[in-house]
């Protein structure tokens, strides 16, 4: 039931991002001249690597989910024995990759601000920071959720179905945020 509820909530999140995409496309259609000038300042190779990091983090997250479904909360072997890793190790790895993504976003914001693209510069910069910023807040929210799920796995002696459900629905959220970023990346960096 918690899983179905999460999907229904994520569908409403989808419509939230639909609004942001609409803002972006409307402004882009209204002021193509501003878009032509400002999109030239984007660092596409850097954003591509950052995107790859987020996509790979989704893979680690899914490997953690498989372990959660098998009821394995933590590693049963040595630290670098990847096959024996449990949900916790994979989620920590996901967390690190997600953290690197957010750090990359911050670095990109700093570079763009240096080139005089700030939140209040023009229609393009507002649309850029609104869309990527709200996505960034979602990623940070996901990182907090990972911390809570990892923390929960320490609380009880037995890893129960309720623990696994929490881990699985968090992965749904993470995959959703990942897919939204792929759409945002295609819109902002490829389509321009």
């Amino acid at each position: 039931m918690a899983a179905v509820g999460t999907i229904v909530w994520l569908s409403s999140e989808l419509m939230f991002f639909a609004g942001l995409f609409s803002i972006y496309f409307t402004l882009r259609a209204t002021r193509p001249d501003v878009w032509a000038e400002e999109t030239a300042k984007l660092n596409v190779p850097f954003a591509t690597i950052n995107t790859l990091i987020l996509v790979i983090s989704s893979v680690w997250c899914q490997l953690g989910v498989f372990k959660a479904e098998q009821g394995i909360p933590s590693r049963t072997g040595k630290l670098f024995d990847l096959k024996r890793w449990g949900m916790r190790e994979w989620y920590v790895l996901t967390y690190l990759f997600g953290g690197v993504f957010v750090a990359g976003q911050v670095l990109e914001y700093a570079e763009l601000t240096h080139e005089n693209v700030a939140l209040n510069t023009d229609a393009y910069s507002s649309a850029f920071y609104m869309t990527t910023g709200f996505h960034g807040i979602h990623v940070i929210g996901g990182l907090v959720a990972f911390l809570l799920i990892i923390g929960r796995s320490f609380t009880t002696r037995q890893y129960t179905h309720r623990h696994a459900t929490g881990a699985i629905v968090t992965s749904y959220y993470w995959h959703f945020v990942d897919v939204v970023w792929i759409a945002l990346f295609a819109t902002i960096y490829i389509l321009k």
Partner: peptide, 13 residues
């Protein structure tokens, strides 16, 4: 764009 994006994403939703 607003209608196209939102109607298409309604289908996805």
């Amino acid at each position: 764009p607003v209608g196209v994006v939102c109607l298409a994403l309604l289908a996805v939703m």
